[in-house]
Amino acid sequence: MRTRMKGVLAVGCSLLVLTTAGCGAADMTKQASPFANAQGAKTVTLSVQSWVGAQANVAVAQYLLEHELGYRVDTVQVDEVPAWDALSQGRVDAILEDWGHPEQEQRYVKDKKTIVNGGGLGVTGHIGWFVPTYFAKQHPDVTNWKNLNKYADQLRTPESGGKGQLLDGSPSYVTNDKALVKNLDLDLQVVFAGSEAAQITQMRQFAKEKKPFLTYWYSPQWLFKKVPMTEVKLPAYKEGCDADPEKVACAYPHTPLQKYLNTDFAKSDGKAADFLKKFKWTTEDQNEVSLMIADQKLTPEEAARKWAEGHESTWKAWLRK
C-alpha cells in the first residue's frame, strides 16, 4: 500500500511540476483582481483608504465613471503602503489621495516604472497635534508644545496610565508621534486607537462631555466642522528635519496630495485614466462630500450624486478630452 501511495504522490507531484513549469514563466506582478471586468463591462479598481476624505474622492470618481463613462468600479480597502504594492501589481488601478511616501515613489515610479504619477488632487494635507477649541479657549497657552506638560494631568485617561494621553489613529497613518514625545521630553503616552473610526468615536465622546484631549489629526478633515479643534504648535518644520525617524523633533509638513496610477492602466485604458488624471478638486469640495458620508450617514453613492448635481461645471471639466 505504501508503494502505491508513493506512486500516487509521485504522479501528483510531477503533474504539478508539469502544469507549473511546462508552459513558461508566469508573472504574478501583472494580475488584475479576479473580480474585475466581469460581464463585459470594463472595470476600474480604485483603492480606498480608511479615512473619509479618501472615500469622498473615490465615491465621486466612482459615481462619474459609472454614470458618465459606463465603467464598473470596484473598490478595495487597502492601507497606504500596501496600496502602492497593489497598484504596482495592477490589483488596483489608481490611488486618488497619497500623503507622500518617498521611499515607495523611488521604488515603483522611478526604478520599476510600474506606477505613474497622476497629478495633484488639488487638496493640501497637513498633519498635526490638535486640542478641542473649547479647551484652547480656556487655556490659550496649551497651543504651544512647551506648555503641554502642564496639562498632562488633565489629559489622563485609563488607557494612558499615569501620563497624559496623545490619541493616535490608525496604524497605517504616517506618524512620528512616539519619537516626538520622546525627543521633546513630554509627559505624554501615545495611545493608538487602532483605526480612524475608533479615534473619531473617542474624540466625539470627549467633545460631548467637553473633556480636554490631545490628538493626532489632519486636515482636510470633515470632523473639524463637528468638533472645532485648534492646532498645537510644534517646533517648526524644516526640509529634512524628519529624515531620521528616531530623531524627529519638528512639526509635520504641508503636503500637496497626489494621485498615482498603474502604468499599464494609464497607457491602455484611455478614457478612465484620462478622467482620473484630470480629477482635481478643492478642500471644500472634499469636505462637503465627506461630511455627507460620515456625518449624515449617506451612502457614498448618494453623497456623490448630491455633490455632482451641485457642481456640474467642476466635473464636466474632468470629462473633456
Binding site: D85, S172, G194
Partner: peptide, 20 residues
Amino acid sequence: GGLVGGGALGYDVVFGLAQG
C-alpha cells in the same frame, strides 16, 4: 482587537500590514 484599539501584539500585526 488590535483593530479596535487593543494595542500590543494585535496592533503590531495591523501596523505591519498597514505600513507594509
